[in-house]
Design a protein around this nucleic acid. Structure first.
Length: 218
DNA sequence: ACGGTCAACTTGTATT
DNA sequence: AATACAAGTTGACCGT
C-alpha cells in the first residue's frame, strides 16, 4: 500500500526507479501538448542522464532534497517510437528475461527498470481488457439464458394449460430393461419426452444429448 | 475543472 | 536471501 508522502522515499526497496534519461521526441506528429512535453523532457535532462543500464540511488535523494523531499518524479512519456518498439517486443513475448530486457533498454535508451515497468503495466492492461471482454461475453450469455428461461417457463405454463394426459408410470424393473433411447424423461415436466414433440422437448433432448456427449436423443 | 491514461511506485507472494 | 511478478496505488499529464 503506497502511502502518500512516503512514496519512493523508501527506495530502499528493490529498485532505484529514477526518471529516465530525457528524450527529445523523435515522434514528429506530436500535436498540441508537445511544447509541454519538451519542457518536461528538458527538466529530465537535469536528471542523471548517463549510467548505461545501471541504477543509482543517490541522485534521487538529491533531487528530492531540492524541494523538501516532497517532489514526485516528473512523469516520463515514452516517445511513439519507443512505444512502437516496446509493443512490437510485447507481441513476441509478454515476459522478458534479464538479457532481453537489457538489450531492449539499450536499444530504447531507457533503463532496464523502465522496460520492466512498462512490461508489467502492459501485462496488467492486457489482463484488464481480457477481463472486460469476458465480462461482456458473460453478460450476453446471461441475457440470452434469461430470455430462454422465460420462454421455457411460459411454454411449461402453456403445456400445463393443455392438460396433457398423465405420464405412463412404469415399474422400476421395466424401466431398467428398456433401452435409453425409448425412455428419456424431461426433468422439467417429467413427461416421457416421446409423448410430445414440442420445441421444448426438442430443446431439452438436444441439451441432454450434448451433456452426455452423444448424438441427438430420439 | 474533471476524468482518463500511464509511468512509476509499494506491497505481498511465489519461485529459485 | 534474491529475484520476478501481480495487484493495487499514486500523481503527472492530457484531452474535453
Amino acid at each position: 500500500m503506497a502511502i502518500p508522502g512516503l512514496t519512493s522515499s523508501s527506495s530502499s526497496s528493490s529498485s532505484s526507479s529514477f526518471p529516465s534519461p530525457s528524450f527529445v521526441s523523435e515522434a514528429g506528429g506530436g500535436g498540441g501538448g508537445e511544447s509541454k512535453m519538451v519542457m518536461m523532457r528538458e527538466l529530465d535532462i537535469n536528471m542523471p542522464a548517463s549510467r548505461e543500464g545501471e541504477d543509482e540511488d543517490g541522485e534521487e535523494e538529491e533531487a528530492k532534497e531540492e524541494d523538501g523531499g516532497a517532489r514526485r518524479v516528473k512523469k516520463l512519456r515514452l516517445s511513439k517510437e519507443q512505444t512502437r518498439l516496446l509493443e512490437e517486443s510485447f507481441r513476441h513475448h509478454h515476459n522478458l528475461n534479464p538479457k532481453q530486457k537489457g538489450a531492449l533498454a539499450v536499444k530504447l535508451k531507457l533503463r532496464s527498470r523502465q522496460v520492466e515497468v512498462w512490461f508489467q503495466n502492459r501485462r496488467a492492461r492486457t489482463k484488464v481488457k481480457q477481463t472486460e471482454m469476458e465480462c461482456e461475453y458473460l453478460k450476453r450469455c446471461f441475457g440470452s439464458l434469461t430470455e430462454e428461461n422465460h420462454r421455457l417457463q411460459s411454454e411449461v405454463e402453456q403445456l400445463r394449460a393443455l392438460r396433457v394426459p398423465p405420464p405412463v408410470v412404469l415399474p422400476p424393473h421395466t424401466r431398467l430393461s428398456l433401452p435409453t433411447s425409448s425412455f428419456t424423461m424431461c426433468p422439467h415436466c417429467e413427461h416421457i419426452s416421446s409423448a410430445t414433440s414440442t420445441s421444448h422437448h426438442t430443446t431439452w433432448r438436444l441439451r441432454y444429448s450434448q451433456s452426455i456427449g452423444f448424438g441427438i436423443v430420439p
